[in-house]
Deep mutational scan, measured.
Amino acid sequence: EETVVIALYDYQTNDPQELALRRNEEYCLLDSSEIHWWRVQDRNGHEGYVPSSYLVEKS
C-alpha cells in the first residue's frame, strides 16, 4: 500500500538527485529509510529526494 504525503512548503532545487516540491501537492512516498531525506514521486512520475521535514503524511 502506497503512502501519500503532502508538501507543507515549496522546495526549489538544482540538484538532479532531488525533486522540487509545491506546497499542498501530493506525492507518493517511495523511501523513508533516511531520517532527513525521503524519496518521493510526483504525479508526473518524476522521482527525487526531498527534505522530510517539508512533508506530512496524508491522513
Rank of each mutant, 00 (worst) to 15 (best):
R22A: 12
I6R: 08
Q41K: 13
N44T: 14
E1S: 04
S32D: 15
Q12V: 10
V56S: 11
R22S: 12
Y9A: 14
Y11V: 02
N44H: 11
L19K: 02
H36Y: 10
W38C: 08
A20H: 12
W38S: 09
V50F: 03
V4H: 08
D15W: 06
Y9Q: 15
D15E: 14
I6D: 01
H46L: 11
T3G: 05
E47M: 06
L21A: 02
R39T: 07
H46K: 12
V40W: 00
E25H: 12
Y54V: 09
N14H: 15
N24Q: 11
D15F: 11
E18W: 04
Q17K: 15
E18G: 12
D31C: 06
H46T: 11
D31V: 03
T3I: 12
L21K: 00
V56K: 12
R22P: 00
S33K: 05
A20I: 11
E2Y: 08
S33L: 05
D10H: 04
G45V: 01
T3R: 13
N24S: 12
Q17L: 10
D10A: 04
S33Q: 13
S32Q: 12
E25T: 10
T3A: 10
V50H: 01
E34G: 14
R23H: 11
Y11W: 14
D42L: 00
Q41P: 01
Y9H: 08
E34A: 14
P16S: 12
I6S: 04
Q41S: 11
E2M: 09
R39W: 08
E18S: 10
P51G: 01
D15Y: 06
V4R: 06
Y49P: 03
L55Y: 00
G48A: 04
D31T: 04
V50G: 04
T3S: 11
R43D: 15
V4A: 09
A20S: 13
V50R: 01
K58I: 07
S32A: 11
V56L: 15
V50Q: 00
S52C: 07
S53F: 04
W37R: 15
E57H: 08
E26P: 05
E2A: 07
W38M: 04
N14W: 05
L30G: 01
G45N: 05
I35Y: 08
S53H: 15
N24I: 01
L29R: 04
S52P: 10
T13R: 08
S32Y: 10
V50A: 14
C28K: 15
E26D: 05
S59T: 13
L21M: 06
L19C: 13
E47F: 04
I6T: 15
N24V: 01
P51A: 01
S59E: 15
L30E: 04
V5L: 10
D15K: 15
H36V: 07
L29G: 00
E18P: 07
